[in-house]
């Protein structure tokens, strides 16, 4: 498998002025993501995770270092649209990323910008709307939809570009539990069925636990990069940088501290229930 995203020694500073010094947000990040991966990026506020995300489709350019997406250097202005087509982005607030007053026209927005001919556009818009299960709402106004539905429309708008990779910057932070479930299910399906690489920036631990790989950031550096099981079994370390672990992991960890014989890498409720059952049996 080839790397879709290659980040080499990425540094980024927000420029200050005469009174305020430059603020270094990213302090040397090396990260490779393979085509088809499902990666969560965790970190508390100010860890640099959103800044990192904005580098992947050239909203921000590195102060030093390199970001390559599908072999394209993000600093290459000539290929900017090429790049943004390959790496789509979904933001936190669904209201602030929907452009049109009609759902299907919003999904078509990127295609209109790219000058895709009508027949091709029609086909891609319909396919994308069906992929996120919003086809029946294609003629609605976004203001009639719930947060989760709006976010799925935003995802459809990105999928219509047929990207290789989608970066989602806390897409569920403003949604209710129902909306969060819908969005997570949609993202997972895109990864599984279309093989689209997913980079999910989140601060929900249970969402990170559903990914295959978790990258933990703290103070502008990558501090952990492993499977969710391996990351969350380092409970103390995770807590020391101001993050939580999923509730069941924490329960298992407390039980272990209390002297129970229970595995330290529990992530799901089922695993936890099984482990506790075994504990009682033995």
């Amino acid at each position: 498998m080839s790397n879709i995203i290659e980040i080499k020694d990425l540094h980024f500073s927000y420029k200050g002025d005469e009174e305020t010094p430059d603020v270094e947000v990213l302090k040397g990040i090396d990260l490779n993501i393979e085509q088809g991966e499902f990666v969560a990026v965790l970190g508390h506020n100010g860890s640099g995770k959103s800044t990192l995300a904005k580098h992947i489709n050239a909203i921000l350019l590195p102060t030093s270092g390199k970001v390559l997406v599908d072999g394209i250097d993000t600093a290459d202005e000539q290929r900017l649209f090429d790049l943004r087509q390959r790496a789509g982005m979904v933001f936190q607030n669904p209201d602030n990323q929907i452009v049109s007053s009609v759902v299907e026209e919003d999904v078509a927005f990127a295609l209109e910008n790219l000058g895709v001919p009508y027949e091709e556009m029609r086909r891609r818009v319909d396919e994308s709307l069906k992929a996120v299960n919003m086809y029946d709402y294609r003629l609605h106004s976004p203001s009639q939809l719930s947060g989760g539905q709006k976010q799925r429309i935003a995802i459809a708008g990105v999928i219509a570009m047929e990207p290789k990779c989608i970066i989602l910057d806390e897409p569920t932070a403003m949604l209710d539990p129902q909306g969060r479930r819908e969005v997570m299910a949609t993202i997972k399906r895109m990864n599984k069925e279309k093989g689209i690489t997913i980079v999910l920036i989140t601060h929900y631990m249970d969402e990170a636990a559903q990914c295959r790989r978790v990258v933990v950031m703290d103070k502008g550096r990558v501090v952990m990069d492993d499977s969710p099981k391996a990351v969350f079994s380092r409970v103390e370390e995770v807590k020391s940088i101001g993050l939580d672990v999923p509730q069941v992991t924490e329960l298992a960890w407390e039980l272990r501290k209390a002297g129970c014989d229970i595995p330290g890498d529990i992530l799901t409720e089922e695993e936890c229930a099984d482990a506790i059952e075994r504990l009682f049996r033995s």
Binding site: F91, N93, D95, Q97, V99, A108, Y118
Partner: peptide, 25 residues
């Protein structure tokens, strides 16, 4: 704030003014 976020979101979806645009409607 909305305007700022919307502008970024539009850029991410390759918005580049009216040149060479096609229309769904």
């Amino acid at each position: 704030r909305r305007a700022d976020e919307l502008a970024t979101a539009m850029e991410c979806r390759c918005y580049n003014g009216g040149e060479g645009r096609t229309r769904l409607r």
